[in-house]
Simulated assay, not measured.
Amino acid sequence: MRFTSTMLASAAILGSANAALKGFNYGAFFLNDAAKQQADFEYEFNAAKQLAGTSAAFTSARLYTMIQHGTTNTVIEAIQAAINTKTQLLLGMWASAGSDNFNNEITALKAAISQYGTSFTDLVVGISVGSEDLYRITPTGIANQAGAGAQPSELINYVAQTRAAIQGTGLAGKPIGHVDTWTAYVNGSNAGVISALDFLGVDAYPYWETTTANSIGNANASFYDAYQQTVAAAQGKAVWVTETGWPVTGPTENQAVANADNAKIYWQDVSCSLMKNNVNLFYYTLQDAQYGTPVPSFGIKPAGDLLAVDALFDLTCPN
């Protein structure tokens, strides 16, 4: 199944009123637990803009936290890197570590506003309160040892705290959302969270849909089924694609084979269609790690190669 006319219409409606955001996800630390520094973020943000073969401008970055890794509440150095490279930011507030940690996220957010002013706030396109917190507390998340999550009531409270924190600042009016799996959004017990949001960020990976036919030939249909179910549950809110991708290396998951050829097919079938139809997209990921190679590896740039500009597969979109 390909992207039908109904899906195209929905995607156009749900995209940004202006040119859609195009970016990647950026973690706060490397595989060896070393914190990314300003220079590391600048390298990544610049590398995203210099990718060969794509006509799209990948000028946006999704962060998972406001806190510099290894500190209590120091502002993450990605902020200065974004200012230096003129990179738009979808901010992240980590919400699965308890209320004390979330208070530190709020502290770092306020500090960034105070420290950087409009140089920072003008780059912010949205704030995501949490990332897959609802998924982690499901039986599937627990079985997959996904880690601590957060209850719906906690997330609703965190969203309210974030709205209060930005009131009267340069971030006032910026859309506040939450990022989770499509399965979390279609769960009716999470409807209260959706009601509290301005947008929904959905993470959808056909590669991991191991209980269904999940070969690369079915990936387009699998992704858009998840996307449309999220749209149906969104209460009219905008839906951003905050994570999706296909691994270039890794184990075979049911029928899903990880290799660069399949990643290219996924890019052309899914990523290109989202960009064509003006849906905000944060692909996972530009480069999994500068040091070491994760399993599976979703990076379109080779892990560990700081000098490589070209992707591991052709990023040209079909006409």
Rank of each mutant, 00 (worst) to 15 (best):
S215G: 06
T162Y: 01
A112C: 07
A35P: 09
N157H: 07
D180T: 02
V231E: 10
A232C: 10
R62Q: 07
A48R: 03
A11I: 00
V270E: 11
G27D: 09
V125E: 13
A256Y: 00
R62T: 01
A221M: 12
L315C: 05
D261R: 07
L8K: 05
Y43I: 15
A12Q: 13
I176N: 04
F120H: 02
T140F: 10
F282G: 08
G141K: 11
N46Y: 08
M1S: 10
A9S: 14
S195C: 07
A111L: 05
A150M: 07
I300C: 14
D40A: 14
A9P: 03
F41I: 11
A204P: 09
F313G: 01
A263C: 13
F41G: 05
A164M: 07
Y266P: 00
D225N: 14
A303Y: 02
D225K: 14
T249N: 02
N214E: 03
V202L: 09
Q151M: 08
G250I: 09
G27E: 11
Y43A: 07
N218K: 10
P152E: 00
V248L: 06
T138W: 01
F282A: 00
K174M: 03
V257N: 05
Y158T: 14
Y283D: 09
L274S: 09
G130V: 05
P175E: 14
D203V: 08
N144V: 15
A238T: 04
V231I: 09
S215F: 08
G217Y: 04
A52T: 15
A308W: 03
S222L: 15
A81K: 02
Y227D: 05
M66T: 12
Y207G: 10
N218I: 00
N101R: 15
Q235H: 09
Y283A: 15
T65Q: 01
A19P: 10
S297P: 06
N84F: 03
Q229G: 03
D261I: 01
W182G: 14
D180K: 05
V202H: 04
I83M: 00
G117D: 10
G188W: 01
A11F: 04
A232L: 13
N214S: 07
A9V: 13
A303C: 06
L21E: 01
V129F: 11
A112P: 08
W240N: 01
G177Q: 03
N101Q: 11
G192Y: 10
F3D: 09
K174V: 15
D288Y: 01
K237F: 14
P296Y: 02
V124A: 03
Y291F: 15
Q290C: 08
S153D: 06
I176R: 02
L306Y: 15
K22L: 07
N259S: 05
C317G: 03
A95E: 04
A39R: 14
A172G: 10
E209F: 11
A82H: 06
S131Q: 15
F24D: 00
